Amino acid sequence: MAAPNLPDAVIEYDDADGAYRVQLEACPGDAPSIAVVALVGTLEGVPSADLAPLYDSVDPEALDSLHESLVGSDAGSTVVFPYAGYEITVTAAAIAARPVDE
């Protein structure tokens, strides 16, 4: 099942680091693996089904499991990986996508 694209209203842009952010609570299903694809699809203006599979960059199940361990943790840890021309950063509360210059 393809992830639905996100409404533009839930995406914030941070001038300081050039990243687009979305709070996970605003994402369908709240699963980071789904939210990453939905965010990048929205930023690229294409259906998420047209993007490369997320598993080409990261194991979606492992990402979701790692995220579960971040929620409620005081560690402030992040997961960072490349996907579809973006550097993706996942925290306990949000996902950021920063375009990578090629």
Rank of each mutant, 00 (worst) to 15 (best):
L51N: 00
D64Q: 14
S57W: 06
A93V: 03
S48H: 05
V100C: 04
Y20H: 15
A97C: 04
P60S: 13
E44K: 15
S65G: 11
V40G: 12
Y13A: 14
Y20K: 06
D74Y: 12
G18K: 06
L39N: 04
L24F: 11
S69K: 08
A16F: 07
P60T: 12
G18H: 07
D8W: 01
A96P: 00
E12M: 08
E102N: 12
P60R: 08
G45A: 13
A9W: 02
G18Y: 07
V37I: 12
D101V: 04
D59N: 15
S48V: 04
A31H: 01
Y83Q: 00
P4A: 11
G45C: 13
Q23G: 10
E102C: 05
V22R: 02
M1Q: 05
S48M: 07
T42C: 11
Q23K: 10
D74T: 13
S69D: 09
V22D: 01
Y83C: 06
S69H: 09
V80F: 05
T89R: 14
V46Y: 13
P53Y: 13
E87I: 02
L24S: 09
V40K: 09
M1R: 02
A75L: 15
L66D: 01
Y13W: 14
V58N: 00
G18W: 07
G29Y: 11
L54E: 01
E87L: 14
S77C: 06
V37N: 03
P53D: 15
A96M: 03
V40E: 12
G85F: 02
A84P: 00
D59E: 13
R98E: 15
F81K: 02
L54A: 03
D56N: 15
P60Y: 04
M1V: 02
E87C: 13
G45F: 12
E102M: 06
R21Q: 10
I34Q: 15
I34R: 14
I88L: 05
V58P: 00
A92C: 08
S33F: 03
D14W: 05
R21V: 06
V100Y: 01
N5S: 13
Y55A: 14
G18E: 07
E102K: 07
A93C: 03
L24C: 12
A31S: 07
G41P: 03
T42E: 05
A94E: 07
V71Q: 06
L51G: 06
V37G: 08
E61R: 13
Y86G: 03
A2M: 02
I88T: 01
G85L: 04
L66C: 08
L63S: 07
V71D: 02
P60M: 11
S65Y: 10
I34D: 12
L70C: 09
A19R: 06
G45T: 07
A94I: 00
